[in-house]
Amino acid sequence: MEGLTDKVVVFAGAGGIATATASLLGAGGARIVVSDVVLDSAERTAQAARDAGGEAIAVVADISDQDQVNAQIDRAVKEYGRIDGLFNVAANIHPDQVAEDTDAIGIDLAAWQRTIDVNLTGYLLTLKAALPHMIAGGGGSVVNTISNAVYAGMPDKVAYSVTKSGITALTRHVARRYGKDRIRANSLSPGLVLTEQTKLNLPEDYRDLILQSTPSWRHGDPADLGATAAFLFSDLSAWTTGQVFNVDGGTTMRA
């Protein structure tokens, strides 16, 4: 893809969508610093960028810890001199914690708070750390990952749904507030994407049930999301900001 050469993009979060995006950015000549709470996961995503011809560094960081987030941003600036992009793709997806995210009456407040800390406050912490460097360097692109749970009115996963809605508002705040500083910010909203984590945690019969309710003939692949994210980090999207990109096989159709 055009317009990625030598761009420095920080990934907060690894795994399927991040790995597919890293591969495309690497092929375009970008340089990546990717973090995860598990180093092996971050390293696999970084290796995908290297295998495609790019440069990449893997680090350990918990997105909900400001000191760890700052350390990742500092590492990116030290290694590559600047930051051109920020990809927030981390989420609180540990199966035990997901199971605790129920409804407004039943949810335990500790489970609520942990999801808020990772899914919403964590995105703010990365922005606080990265935006000053991006502005000083002449601008850049932020891509925040949300979910079509924003629209669905889910009967469960109240904390997850609320945080993803909050990220949409946060994205548009950044687009509006820092647009004159040449900062672009957009949200990426996946449908059901068959990552390795999804295949492990979501029964096949449930996946089939979801597919029946979508216009598409198949579920999403991480590469579907990676292609859109790579576009948003490239110069090809230079006049695109404040938008939600629903990459979900037509599940969400909005004007």
Rank of each mutant, 00 (worst) to 15 (best):
L4M: 02
T5G: 07
V9P: 05
V9L: 12
G13N: 06
A14N: 04
I17N: 07
A18N: 08
A18P: 09
A20L: 06
S23H: 08
S23R: 15
S23E: 11
L24K: 04
L25D: 00
A27M: 01
R31W: 04
S35A: 10
D40R: 10
S41M: 09
A42C: 07
R44V: 03
Q47T: 11
Q47L: 13
A49W: 10
G54N: 10
E55L: 11
A56K: 12
A58H: 11
V60A: 13
I63S: 13
S64D: 03
D67H: 08
D67E: 15
Q68M: 09
N70R: 08
V77Y: 15
Y80V: 14
Y80C: 08
I83Q: 06
G85V: 08
F87Y: 14
F87S: 00
V89F: 04
N92S: 09
I93G: 04
I93V: 14
P95I: 03
P95M: 05
D96L: 07
V98W: 01
T102I: 06
D103R: 03
A104N: 07
G106K: 04
L109C: 03
A110N: 12
A111W: 00
Q113P: 06
R114V: 10
R114M: 12
R114C: 08
T115H: 15
L120H: 11
Y123T: 13
L124H: 13
L125R: 08
K128G: 04
L131A: 06
P132Q: 06
H133F: 03
I135R: 13
G137A: 13
G138D: 09
G140Q: 05
S141D: 01
S141N: 03
V143W: 00
I146K: 00
G153S: 04
G153M: 01
K157N: 06
S161M: 05
S161D: 11
K164H: 08
S165C: 12
G166K: 07
H173K: 07
V174H: 02
V174G: 01
A175S: 03
R176D: 05
G179F: 02
A185V: 01
N186A: 04
L188N: 01
L188R: 02
S189T: 15
P190N: 12
G191A: 09
L192N: 04
L194Q: 07
E196K: 15
T198E: 11
T198M: 15
Y206V: 14
R207D: 12
D208S: 10
L211S: 11
L211Y: 09
P215V: 02
S216F: 06
H219D: 05
G220C: 03
P222D: 00
D224T: 10
G226H: 11
A227L: 14
A227F: 11
T228C: 15
T228A: 15
A229M: 07
L232V: 09
S237Y: 13
T240Y: 08
F245A: 03
G249F: 07
T251M: 13
T252Q: 13
M253P: 00
R254V: 14
A255P: 08
